[in-house]
Amino acid sequence: MNAVKRYFSSIFNAIVALLKGMRLTGSYLLHPSKILTQQYPENRETLYIPERFKGRVYMPHDENNEHNCTACTLCQLACPNGSIQIISKNIELPDGTKKKVLDRWVYNLGSCTLCQLCVDACPSDAIVMDNAFEFSVYNKSKLIFDLNRPGSKLKEKKTEPQV
């Protein structure tokens, strides 16, 4: 008798538990307002991207086309996978002394893992992580670019006005 009772109670409990699951999925079916997915390219304007999001390494330039990079190559040394190559050149200053300045800041986005170690290593805050993220290209050579803009130069340190 007990076995029969157990047999039927097991069927009953199983049906109740299964119906609970069906109630859950059914309730989500009836509440389309709970849908979480978004239509990506359409919602580009309203897309929320946190300001710290690491999309690529970027070198900010000011309105005079000047940047902060002193070509010290600390970022190149900090990079674990050789995505950074600093090419510097020597220019002659008006007073005759020679100075090493940045020629090209070559960045390979294809091999970059966005670990932020270069930004962390930079002593003069010349590079930052940017939020941009749509970088798909058909040829990986297009993922290598110069971060410094053509004709840009090092930001002059503010000299104290002579009294």
Partner: peptide, 13 residues
């Protein structure tokens, strides 16, 4: 569509 709505998705759009 039913599957998508049950799973809080939009489904084919």
């Amino acid at each position: 569509k039913i599957a998508a709505f049950m799973q809080m998705r939009l489904g084919p759009m």
